[in-house]
Design a protein around this nucleic acid. Structure first.
Lengths: 232, 232
DNA sequence: CGGAGGATTGATCAGGGTCAATGAAGGTGG
DNA sequence: CCACCTTCATTGACCCTGATCAATCCTCCG
């Protein structure tokens, strides 16, 4: 299972400034593993033994309370998740499961904390990553509180379009049930929202979205750089 | 206006491990100022020139979109706000205004970043603070998505009670209009929620809350440590 | 004393959730 | 290779939480 050369990991912003010896040390206890779809990786409340990095595939972060469950985020390659828990040596606040077949790198949390206190560049990279994740969470909270479900769907489509290269057509990152939960609505309502957005010139075919009238969609969605821009 | 000895700032976790010379350097360009209530401190979108620290009083963080506005957080002494924007040298994602008469320390962001790259202990303190803020934001997102408004109010009351020393009676941290927005509901609905929670043995007199039947309230609210505990 | 803003209450409305039925798609085993 | 089963997506009907609108009252201040 374990693979020797996590070359993609080395390329991450998080590790780019680290010198080779330090990186080798950090990777000594790390391993890369392949998982099939729909596999539970971690459960909320468990101790944070490993920093996880999605190398390929995709992972859903989700949380539950009182028999309810909600999607919190989709993690796509190449990025880390549960960095904050690793840093604080605190239990996970979210569970994680694979969506698709995925390659995941696991780095022992204590090694990350050790590297952090030795390597100043790495420390800065960690803070930067954490600050970015914090800001992206602020943006999604703003979206959740300031927009209704139709507006959230419309703006989500525009953001996905940008991420996938700004072409007119692109794929949704997950099934519609998960997407609905991510956007804070039910699958039934997402279905109706898509239908209703056809008036703004969007077309849905399974997970393939095509935006026929960009201007019309944006006129309705009113995207804002302090909510929707990837990284400000 | 500027005051010479920001002694409370020195006591913050963020600066406790810092040596005196380094701290003095960081404070050279800093100043402490008194503000009356309802004063705008910063506006979202502006460059993050200063790290802010609430020394006394209280501050509301809020955001707007398309003529709507929502409260994002109440910052109470002694703690920092907009740390992530300072670290990333990015524009503020939230606006801030004083609620009560407040003393605020302002430290130039570039000095914070400079101290960060020189002082390893400080770097670790920053990451720790940021990780904590991130986790607390995750918790409030979970609350927003997993609980209905009555449940949010009930759990909010339990949390406030803990923060204020776990006695039966305590004060709300702000007026009810702001509180409603913070909890993602309207003032009218908050009013009705309070009334409805009287069945669980709570009493409201202005901003004074008294919990007469702790067990009954908790049976309804079902607080959970991965959402409601202050710092796990 | 008067005015402005917050709080409360009631009446009404709509956004969005729930329930149920049906259809489409993909995986499994005979 | 196909029948079957499970899961997801869609659609319709209905309901409920919570928003909106409006009127009143209260409190704090100038």
């Amino acid at each position: 299972m374990t693979e020797p050369k996590p070359i993609e990991v080395r390329q991450l912003d998080l590790f780019r400034g680290m010198d080779d010896a330090q990186f080798a040390l950090l990777m000594r206890g790390a391993y890369v593993q392949n998982f099939p779809p729909s596999i539970d990786l971690i459960g909320e409340g468990e101790p944070s033994d490993f920093l996880h990095i999605v190398l390929s595939g995709s992972v859903e972060l989700f949380s539950g309370w009182n028999d309810r469950e909600t999607s919190m985020a989709i993690v796509r390659p190449v990025s880390t998740f549960i960095l904050a828990a690793t840093i604080r040596d605190a239990p996970y606040l979210m569970s994680a499961r694979t969506i698709a077949k995925s390659r995941i790198a696991l780095i022992p949390s204590q090694d990350v904390r050790a590297a952090f206190s030795i390597d100043g560049d790495f420390a800065f990279a960690v803070v930067d990553e954490l600050a970015q994740q914090y800001r992206s969470l602020i943006k999604s909270t703003k979206e959740l509180k300031l927009r209704n479900s139709l507006e959230r769907v419309a703006n989500f489509l525009i953001r996905e379009q940008q991420k996938s290269g700004a072409g007119a057509a692109f794929q949704l990152p997950c099934d519609k049930k998960r997407l609905a939960s991510l956007l804070g609505m039910t699958a039934e309502n997402l279905s109706r929202a898509f239908k209703s957005l056809q008036k703004c010139g969007i077309e849905i075919d399974g997970t393939l979205i095509t935006i026929h009238d960009q201007d019309e969609l944006e006129r309705f969605a009113k995207p804002h750089h302090l909510i929707d821009d990837d990284d400000i």
